[in-house]
Nucleic acid binder design. Sequence first.
DNA 1: CGGGCAGTTGACCCCGCTCAAGCGCGGTGG
DNA 2: CCACCGCGCTTGAGCGGGGTCAACTGCCCG
Lengths: 233, 233
Amino acid sequence: MKKSDSLPVCDFCFKYNETFRHLTKDEIDILSYVKSCNNYKRGDTVYHEGNRTGGIYCVSEGIIKHYKTGIDGKEQIIRFSKKGDVFGFRSILSEEPACTTTKVIKKASLCYIPSTQFLKFIRTNTNFSMFILKLSCRELGDANQYIMDIAQKNVRERLAEILLLLNDNFGTDKNGVLNISLTREELAGIVGTATESVIRLLSEFKKDGIVKLNRRKIKLIDTKRLKKITDVY
Amino acid sequence: MKKSDSLPVCDFCFKYNETFRHLTKDEIDILSYVKSCNNYKRGDTVYHEGNRTGGIYCVSEGIIKHYKTGIDGKEQIIRFSKKGDVFGFRSILSEEPACTTTKVIKKASLCYIPSTQFLKFIRTNTNFSMFILKLSCRELGDANQYIMDIAQKNVRERLAEILLLLNDNFGTDKNGVLNISLTREELAGIVGTATESVIRLLSEFKKDGIVKLNRRKIKLIDTKRLKKITDVY
DNA sequence: CGGGCAGTTGACCCCGCTCAAGCGCGGTGG
DNA sequence: CCACCGCGCTTGAGCGGGGTCAACTGCCCG
């Protein structure tokens, strides 16, 4: 039985994923031989910060959070990965241990590619390495932006920004509800604040008719007003 | 007259700079043909955020700050570059405008390499591109760490951390004074706080015998105590 | 029906920002 | 050489954003 029969979803990576479009036909063949796919449920840990990982991952389905553990075990969420994203290459390429813990937010299937093979591709395929280079430089730009926001904006402004960002990244279902379900604590972990502050501000937004709330379902009503809140300067 | 006679300092890049050690002899020859060197004094701007840059820079002497301009024009300093560092490749490789403004802190000589040539090297020399890849991934790790610090540590803890970081990066002169001279405002721009807060905390550190202050000269007396202050968790 | 956890709300208070005034050093011009 | 000016630095007062703690609610699940 071929692997692709048991886990057909994994074909996604090679056919449609933007990253692997830069590989040649032969390289794709090698890849499908060495890769391994796995399903994960919400809460599963892919890897822990401080560990060596030995490979990179590609998301064929689901949502992943990357966070650092801080004071009192408080999670600081750095970013998310979703369908089509690759992650885990940072520590491989910088030759450092993983700098974030990676957990599943929405049940996922991930493909794993051993670093030896990944590095071979990087070394031999210029288009592929250029793409990864571009990716890491984009992420660096995002991180720089985030440093400024967190240093200079207040919690209200940052929360509004995060809501818009989640909207851009994950979109909404047919009812206009954000396609990502986060606990208030996780939201606080992105914004960089206390859970209670997120709750208070969300219900303030609700009162002002900017969002609708139903447990973890968040619907953005007035994105223009959210934009006005973040962009105060 | 050869270029190296008028600006001999520029030989540094090719002979000793870690980045360019990955180029071949032939490539170095090309490089010395296309590069151009310039001297800058404190306060000079190398490029502005939002602009296209057209090339990368290598520091043969001096110190450079990279910052984003935020609310009310408040500078958020993201990082520094010093002798031997290259910068400006992020925006070239991500194909975005510069995300930071780059200014001279301590008078500098910089070599400029047009992006066309830089990209050729990246495309044709695997060792070189691997090195740049590693560099950007390291920077990304640093940025992630900084996000967590700024989100979770208080100003006192962050200031202590920055002092130690400046000590690691720039060292001290024979009197133990930090080899980088920053205004209180610039320090505040790194820590992500108000100038007055930096001043108050510095004089508190002084009172406790942790640092000695003489205008912009900062001498770290008790680095262990600084470490203890940052590492509270 | 009860236990547990996420979510919510209120009270309190402290960190750190802002505003304002004063200080000191270095540069400039008379 | 001194007087003046201005910028960077310092200090104090005041206050508000947001963190912490505690109590309560509501939903889910066994």
